[in-house]
């Protein structure tokens, strides 16, 4: 358990999503990263049922239920800007029972799948974000294992990211915050994924040129 940075890799000019991913993974392999199976992060959106909403026309909050193969026994439920709940995988069954309060948004399932690479203390996961049948983008997750305080290792992470993302290196994720000595946890990773997915969902309306 370390500090994780999740970022989006834009699709290279004139390449498909698949090709860009291949490019990235080849780079990683050339660095000497070891392939260690696959990974998967999925997210399902729920909105509060109409019956429970107030009459003042307030909009229901969205709730995201996510799973991460890195944490195989856990299930994450998040509100935007809100709390993050970590529960057993049985939580999915509970959501079925809570149909009256939370309704699953149709065709909202978004997920990223890809390969997991270990490079010394770094864990790199390059995945293709898919929504329904179509690939929407590329996610890059880098975890630095030995550290749990984000501010202590951000520069190291940044340097590592630069080594294979080049000019597409992202800025510090918002969850890292300004506070020092805050222990980074799995929930923070999921918040980053949620934000990434939301960003990609919004891009959906403006189709990116280059996705073929």
């Amino acid at each position: 358990m370390g500090v994780t940075c999740v970022s989006q890799m834009p699709v290279a000019e004139g390449k498909s999503v698949q090709q860009t991913v291949e490019l990235l993974t080849r780079k990683l392999e050339m660095l000497g990263a070891e392939k260690q199976g696959t990974f998967c992060v999925d997210c399902e959106t729920y909105h509060t049922a109409a019956s429970t909403l107030g009459s003042q026309g307030q909009t229901g909050k969205l709730m995201y239920v996510m799973h991460n193969s890195e944490y195989p026994l856990s299930c994450f439920a998040l509100f935007e800007n809100g709390p993050c709940l970590i529960a057993d995988t049985n939580f999915d069954v509970l959501m079925v029972k809570l149909k009256g309060f939370f309704q699953s948004a149709k065709a909202s399932k978004i997920e990223t799948r890809g390969t997991r690479y270990q490079y010394c203390d770094f864990l790199v996961k390059v995945g293709t974000v898919t929504m329904g049948p179509s690939a929407r983008g590329i996610s890059v997750e880098v975890e630095y294992g030995p550290c749990v305080v984000a501010s202590d290792c951000w520069s190291l992470l940044l340097e590592f990211l630069q080594s294979f993302l080049g000019s597409h290196t992202p800025g510090a994720p918002a969850v890292f915050g300004n506070r020092h000595d805050v222990v980074y946890g799995p929930a923070d990773t999921m918040v980053q994924y949620m934000e990434l997915f939301n960003k990609i969902r919004k891009q959906q309306q403006v189709p990116v040129a280059g996705i073929r």
């Binding site: 890195e70 195989p72 026994l73």
Partner: peptide, 12 residues
């Protein structure tokens, strides 16, 4: 506790 505390693969 491994579920609610989000243990990762290595820990499990």
């Amino acid at each position: 506790l491994s579920g609610p505390q989000a243990f990762d693969k290595n820990e499990i």
